[in-house]
Amino acid sequence: MSVSELEHPPVAATPPAAVEDLSPRGGRSRAGVAWRTYRGRVLRILVPALLIALWQASSALGWADEFTLPPPSRILDAYGELWSNGDLQAALPTSLQRAGIGLALGVTIGLALGLFAGLWKIGEEVFDAPLQMLRTIPFIAVVPLFITWFGIGETPKLTLIAAATVFPMYLNTYHGVRGVDKKVIEAGQTFGLTGWRLATRVILPTALPAALTGLRYAAGVSLLALVLAEQINALEGIGYLVNNANQNQRPDIVIAGIGIYALLGIVVDVLMRLAEHFALPWRPRVTIG
């Protein structure tokens, strides 16, 4: 043994530390992958189907009175009756036209006020406080006033829907503009963007997700306001069918009309989701499961 070996004895080699495998498990079955992919679609259909089956079973077993709560089979017969009489084909376009015109008016006003209050300090000082007070008033409370001011024709119905949809559009647009990160604005200013160029190229695109959320919420509110608006001496539309059925003691047609409102809500929500998907393809969808 050499002198260097005596002064510096060899150190025993230690075994390498075990490396923990943090990679995702690769043994997931095809069935698990398919369930994870189509789970949302299946549950969206399965849960309502189970509720309808339970509703039908409760009527068949005598748990619910068929006169007060008709089973789904009678509701389907009511739809067939309305379709064969042509009442449904005549009522649906009228109600959609009312909701569409009122929504367009309300969204236009709310968007303009939200942009004005968000981009300019004077706009916030003039409009924000009154709108914050008015939005707390239930729109059902102003129906008598609208009837007094505008009569019982189409004007109070459209005004009610427009007034109900102004506030969600205004609030989301206003907070979307005011919520733009100051660092993003400063970055745009370093590239020479000021005034309208800064607003149209930086602020408004950044606030677009909030504005679309407001549009989606306003579209749902327009249907809620439509239900109330069509109680104001409506001579056509879904509300007219519901009121007429109520007077004639036809709960099956009443529930059928309510179901039409619900289906319209689902259709509007799907259309708004598609609009957000195509308008904001860069926005990630973050979920935890």
Rank of each mutant, 00 (worst) to 15 (best):
Q231H: 05
V47S: 02
I258Q: 14
A112S: 13
T159G: 07
D128M: 02
L115V: 14
R98A: 11
A262E: 06
Q56K: 03
N172G: 13
L22R: 14
R28D: 02
L280N: 06
M1I: 00
L208E: 07
T287H: 08
A57N: 01
G106Y: 08
L92E: 06
V143C: 10
R98Q: 15
L274Y: 13
K121D: 13
G289D: 12
A211V: 15
A64I: 13
A256R: 05
G40R: 07
I253P: 00
P168S: 01
L92W: 08
R36G: 11
L22S: 05
T14H: 12
R216C: 06
L280C: 08
L50E: 06
T194I: 07
Y38R: 11
W149N: 05
L223T: 04
V286T: 11
V177A: 09
S84Y: 06
P138H: 08
R283A: 14
G237M: 07
P70R: 10
V177Q: 02
L224E: 04
A141I: 14
L131M: 05
A18T: 12
E7R: 06
I232A: 06
I152W: 01
L76N: 03
T37K: 14
L111C: 02
W35D: 05
D77W: 06
A129C: 01
I258V: 15
F139N: 12
R201T: 13
L224M: 15
P156K: 01
K182A: 13
T194S: 07
L226M: 10
L212C: 11
V107L: 12
A13G: 01
I122N: 05
V3G: 00
N85S: 15
I288Y: 12
E236I: 05
L43M: 14
R135G: 10
V166T: 04
L50N: 05
I238W: 03
E154Q: 14
R74S: 14
D128E: 13
N243K: 10
D65M: 00
Y174C: 12
A90P: 02
P209C: 03
I109W: 01
L22Q: 10
L235D: 11
E81H: 09
A279R: 04
G179H: 09
